[in-house]
Design a protein around this nucleic acid. Structure first.
Lengths: 192, 192
DNA sequence: GTCTATAGCTCGATAGAC
DNA sequence: GTCTATCGAGCTATAGAC
């Protein structure tokens, strides 16, 4: 256990999580991870058999984080509109990194769609967790027959804004788009 | 010159273009390119000094293709709305590959934002060519003060839809979203 | 211009001492 | 559980014959 209360396995996952986000999965080597985690290379194989196993652990951690954020939204308010708007803020809270490296889930999805089919499915699961939560909220707001397509539309808007903010490294565009998205949600939910 | 009338340099760029799209830049090796192009590895360095030089040539080719597509839109119609709708169709024409590998410009942008800053700028140029063309069309449609933000919004929509179609490998979602996007354009331009 | 051979390096993964 | 040493494969890039 170190100062943050993480054991070696958790230290490896934490270091890998950051490096995979900043440099991409295939561009991150065991040496990079071991340097950052402060754990010798050879030691890794006691905890993980392959590099893919490390990515699986990282993706599981990101999935858990998303579930936690959704729970935070539930705790934040009882009002569906407030919950959805809060989700926006929470997901795009880390503005600087989004502008620099894109969406932590969307970019790894993009990378994996060009190589590993197995791991790609794990990322789809994360999107599906988010999408289903949004769909349920749309249902609760009385938008029954459009709930599925609206959940997809909301995710697509988020991803699109993130990609462009990353392309142009434009934090102002990101902020303005969040405001527009809030307005879209407000119009959508008030009209019902 | 081969059957397609391409010289060796063009053959390399063509093979690299496809492989970078399908497997990503860092995941594509010289061997992969040489196998596909049918040209020995060592021969590459007569045409390109580094792997980055090949990517630069590929990005230049993709940029040229986008410029050609925009010219096709100009030739297709004199009506701004028809031109913008035609652009949508042209950009998302290759449905199968978009669902499998994402946007050829957006995904390389995502990969490069995690590594090379120099090459990233070349991708931003491609986006900027597209965006400026759209902005000019919005201006021509009488949407002067919103033309810049509308051009960004249109690109963001396209990217978002592409990312989600790729995440879910859902070609129907892609098609439905194009229809929605057309409706958005119609409402926007008719209201003015 | 075209090709073979290979240098020099880094990679993911393993073996085995402690 | 922890660590060092290292393997074998693959990588980008180069040298030099033809």
């Amino acid at each position: 256990m170190n100062q943050q209360g993480l054991n070696n396995k958790e230290l490896i996952v934490e270091a890998a999580d950051q490096l995979f986000y900043q440099y991409g999965y295939s561009q991150t080597s065991f040496s990079d991870i071991s340097d950052k985690a402060g754990i010798p290379r050879g030691n890794f194989y006691y905890y993980f058999k392959t590099k893919d196993d490390i990515l699986t652990a990282v993706l599981t951690q990101r999935h858990q984080l998303i579930k936690q954020l959704l729970q935070d939204c539930e705790n934040y308010s009882n009002d569906v509109k407030a919950q959805l708007i809060y989700l926006l803020e929470v997901l795009l809270r880390d503005e600087e990194n989004i502008v620099k490296y894109g969406c932590p889930v969307g970019t790894i999805s993009s990378e994996l769609s060009k190589s590993s089919v197995n791991l790609q499915m794990q990322v789809t699961d994360i999107f599906e967790t988010l999408r289903q939560w949004i769909e349920i909220k749309m249902l609760a707001a009385g938008l029954a027959e459009r709930s599925k397509s609206l959940s997809m539309e909301m995710l697509a808007r988020l991803q699109g804004v993130t990609v462009l903010a990353n392309v142009y490294h434009d934090i102002d565009f990101l902020r303005q788009s969040i405001q527009q998205h809030k307005q879209w949600l407000t119009d959508l939910l008030n009209a019902n």
